[in-house]
Simulated assay, not measured.
Amino acid sequence: MGDHSHGSPQESGTVAKAQDGSLDKIQDPGLPPHRARLTDTDPRAAKRAERQVAILFAISMIGTVLFFVGYFAVGHPESIAEIRLQNMLLGVGTAFAMLGIGVGIVHWARTLMPDHEIAESRHEVRTEEDRQDAEAIINTIVDESGINRRPLIRNTLIGALALAPLPGVFILRDLDLTKESAGQIVDRLRHTMWDKGVRLTRDPSGTPIKASDVQIGSAFHVIPDGLNDTEDPLNEKAKAVVLLMRLDPEDLSVSPEREDWHYNGIVAYSKICTHVGCPVALYEQHTHHLLCPCHQSTFDLTQECKVIFGPAAHALPQLPITVDDEGFLVAQSDFHEPVGPGYWERG
């Protein structure tokens, strides 16, 4: 092992040992010499940096415009391609809106704002003098930033900062979290395409399902008959899609009011997780558990899909089903409760 006791006095940072064994204070070396940047000495370089900062702020504004193009121009996507286009425009637009401002301010500080170090002694706080000192500091910051001398940077920054919050305002507006709008959302989610006599069909083909087609351990992704012919099939599907499974009737623990909601162990539950609305798409045949892949909420199929693990707060809504005269599975009614995540109070 090496000996670490022979470092230089400067390495201690506070004291040094003299030859006679006494401790001497190290003299403050002061601030390092300031190294001038190219923009400090070359007006053309400073002007070029100013244009670069303005371009970055302009990129932020373009990003906000891209967000609104995706938000309004592709406001009601009707195909997977349109959904992908909208998501790309919203994501890229928001990223450029935030990134343009952040990178622009950093580049502005690194190339144009003063970069010399300042050491000041601490003074006693005095009310009037403190106010004057604070005012002087603010004026110094404004002067050193050069914002008054650089209208191109100032104007583009104002434009970028004015536009950047707007996407967030529109996104928050769409959450519909007021008491009145929450009631409207619950009402919309309470009613789906399911109704008495509507056949259960395979997703996405729309082929009707007979009870004899459903074997113990099997699982079907199901949509209402006629969904593909509606004007807005994606939104209707988002509310009405269900999972259909068959268990041994003896494995089902059924409450009295739901005794006739299944048919010979065939049960149907909403596919939309009650946490944040992800599709519950994983079925464990041996445990009879349904799993949401987003946050691992787990529902017990044998106990009316109550939550046994994860952040979901409500059981999956059950669709009452039976069979028609031809043996096809049909709904007895719509869901008896709103489907989807439980952000609001469910009636």
Rank of each mutant, 00 (worst) to 15 (best):
262 H>I: 02
262 H>C: 10
262 H>M: 06
263 Y>W: 14
263 Y>Q: 13
263 Y>N: 11
263 Y>E: 10
264 N>C: 12
264 N>R: 15
265 G>D: 02
266 I>L: 06
268 A>D: 04
268 A>M: 12
269 Y>Q: 10
269 Y>P: 06
270 S>H: 08
271 K>H: 14
271 K>C: 04
271 K>A: 03
272 I>W: 10
272 I>G: 05
272 I>D: 05
273 C>T: 00
273 C>K: 02
273 C>N: 01
274 T>V: 06
274 T>N: 02
275 H>Q: 00
275 H>I: 00
276 V>N: 06
276 V>T: 11
276 V>G: 08
277 G>K: 00
278 C>K: 00
278 C>R: 01
278 C>T: 00
279 P>F: 00
279 P>Y: 01
280 V>W: 02
280 V>Y: 06
280 V>F: 05
281 A>M: 07
281 A>I: 07
282 L>H: 15
283 Y>L: 10
283 Y>K: 12
283 Y>R: 11
283 Y>I: 07
284 E>P: 06
284 E>R: 13
285 Q>E: 12
285 Q>R: 15
287 T>R: 12
288 H>Q: 14
288 H>S: 14
288 H>F: 12
288 H>V: 04
289 H>L: 10
290 L>P: 03
290 L>N: 11
290 L>Q: 03
290 L>W: 14
291 L>R: 12
291 L>H: 11
291 L>F: 12
291 L>W: 01
291 L>Y: 13
291 L>T: 08
292 C>D: 01
292 C>I: 00
293 P>R: 13
293 P>C: 09
295 H>V: 06
295 H>P: 06
295 H>D: 03
295 H>Y: 01
296 Q>H: 13
296 Q>T: 14
296 Q>G: 12
297 S>F: 08
298 T>H: 09
299 F>P: 09
299 F>R: 07
300 D>H: 13
300 D>I: 14
301 L>F: 09
303 Q>G: 11
304 E>K: 13
304 E>G: 09
304 E>L: 03
305 C>A: 15
305 C>G: 11
306 K>E: 07
306 K>F: 04
307 V>N: 14
307 V>T: 11
307 V>Q: 15
308 I>C: 02
309 F>I: 03
310 G>F: 12
310 G>T: 03
310 G>Y: 10
312 A>G: 14
312 A>Y: 05
313 A>C: 10
313 A>Q: 14
313 A>N: 12
314 H>I: 02
315 A>T: 01
316 L>I: 09
316 L>H: 01
316 L>T: 07
316 L>R: 11
316 L>F: 12
316 L>V: 02
317 P>M: 09
317 P>T: 04
318 Q>A: 13
318 Q>E: 15
319 L>M: 06
319 L>S: 05
319 L>A: 11
